[in-house]
Amino acid sequence: MNAQPDTPSELPAQQQPTQPGLTEPMTPTPDHGEDSWVGHDRLAGRRALITGGDSGIGRAVALAFAREGADVAIVHLPEEQEDADETKRLVEETGRRIVTMALDLTTEQGCIDAVAKTVESLGGLDVLIPNAAHQKQRDGVEDLKVENIERVFRTNLISTMVLAREAVPHMSAGSSIISTTSIQASDPSPGLLDYAMTKAALVAFTQALAAELGPKNIRVNAVAPGPIWTPLIPATGFPDDKVENFGQETPLGRAGQPAELAGAYVYLASDEATYVSGAIIPVTGGRPF
Rank of each mutant, 00 (worst) to 15 (best):
I57H: 01
A269S: 15
R151D: 06
V223S: 01
V61W: 05
P8V: 14
I74W: 08
L90W: 03
I74V: 13
E147Y: 12
N217D: 15
P190D: 14
L122W: 00
I280F: 09
L63R: 04
G286Q: 06
V243G: 00
P188M: 07
A235R: 02
V38A: 12
V141R: 09
L77K: 06
V283R: 00
A62G: 09
E272P: 10
V276C: 12
F238K: 00
G263F: 00
P282L: 01
E260L: 02
N221M: 14
I280G: 04
G253I: 05
L63Y: 01
A3P: 00
I178M: 11
N131K: 11
P28I: 06
E79M: 14
T51L: 08
D271W: 06
A70P: 05
R287Y: 09
G58Y: 06
L122F: 06
R287D: 06
E93Y: 02
Q257T: 05
I74S: 10
E82I: 11
D241M: 05
A185V: 10
L193M: 11
R287W: 08
E24Q: 15
A222E: 07
D104F: 03
D240Q: 12
Q4L: 14
V220S: 06
N148I: 05
R59A: 09
L77N: 01
N148W: 08
E24I: 06
P169D: 04
P12H: 05
E212H: 07
E120D: 15
P215N: 13
G58D: 14
L192V: 01
S172Q: 15
A66E: 03
A196C: 10
S36P: 01
S9M: 13
D104L: 07
L209N: 12
I129L: 15
A73G: 05
Y195K: 02
L213I: 11
R154Y: 04
P282A: 10
Q16F: 03
V162L: 13
G58E: 14
R42W: 12
Q135C: 07
P8F: 13
L144W: 15
V119G: 05
Q14Y: 01
L105R: 03
P258L: 11
V162G: 01
Q4G: 04
R47M: 10
Q248W: 02
V61G: 01
